[in-house]
Design a protein around this nucleic acid. Sequence first.
DNA 1: ATGCTTGTCGGACAGGCCTC
DNA 2: GAGGCCTGTCCGACAAGCAT
Length: 265
Amino acid sequence: MSVDATRWAWRAPVKNATQRLILLSLADRAGEHHTCYPSNKRLAEDTMLNLKTVQKSVCELIELGLIADTGERKGNTNQIRVLQLIGVDSRECNEPKNGAVKQAQKRNSTEIGNDTKNGIGNEPKFGVGNEPKNGLGNLPIEPINESININTAKPAKFSFANELKKLGADNQMINDWMLVRKNKKASNSETSFKNFMTQVEKSKLPLNTILEICIVRDWKGFNASWLSNINLSEFQPAQSPLPHENPTQPVFKGVVKKFKGMSDV
DNA sequence: ATGCTTGTCGGACAGGCCTC
DNA sequence: GAGGCCTGTCCGACAAGCAT
C-alpha cells in the first residue's frame, strides 16, 4: 500500500463515488511504482460493487487519464491487466521542487483548505458542474438548438396516445401500452414518440403488432433491433392481417397465445 | 402528491482471448 | 476442451431531482 497513492486517490478528479472507491482500492494495492493488478473480480469483491460496474468504472478511469493500462499482464493466467496510477507523484513533483512550492502554498492558504494538489485549480468534485447525477442541472456541451421555442410560443400539448391513435393504432393497444409506460415511468414526450416511430418504421412491422409486442414484453419503449431476440411468429399470427384495418381480433391473438402458453406452464 | 427525467447499478448472456 | 478473464449488449429496478 502506498500512502502517496491513497492520498492521490482521495484527491483525484473523479466523476462519482464509484470511481473514487475503485481508485482507492487500486491505490490500496499499488506498489512502489504505483502499479497494481487486481482482477476486476477482485475489485468487485473489495468494493462490494457489481463486476459490471467495476469494469465500466475502470474503463472510465482510464478514459479520464487517472489510470492507464500498462499493457503488461499478470496473474495465474497472465491476463490480468497491470494498471498504472497516473499522477501519483505529481504532488511531490509540483511542490517540493523549490520554486513551485510557494505558488501552491499561497493558493492553498486562501482556497480549499490545504489541498495542494495540482495546478488544475478547480476540483471538479466540488463544483456542481460536472456531477452527472444532477442531470438537467448541468446541461453540458451540446447547445439547446432544438427549435423548441422555450421563451415564446407555448408548445402545443402533445399526447402520445393521440398520436398513436392518429396512426391507426387500436385503442385497447394504446391503453394497455400506455399503462405499461406509465408503470415504467416512461416519458410521453414528443421526442420519445418520434424515436418510437423511427424504430417502428425501421422494423417494417405494423404499428399494432409493435404495440402488442411492447405490451406482452412489458417494454416501455421499442427498438427495432430488439426484434431479433423474440419469436415474431407469436405476434404475427396468420401472416399479420393488417392490424391497421382490423385490429381487434388478429392482433390480440398473439397475446392470447402468450397467456395460454403461460397458463400451460 | 404525483409523474417525468436522468443516471446508477446489476443480471443475464454472448463472444473472444489466453493458459493449462 | 475446460476454465479464467475481459468486453460488450440488452434489459430492468431503483433512486434522486425536478416539474406540475
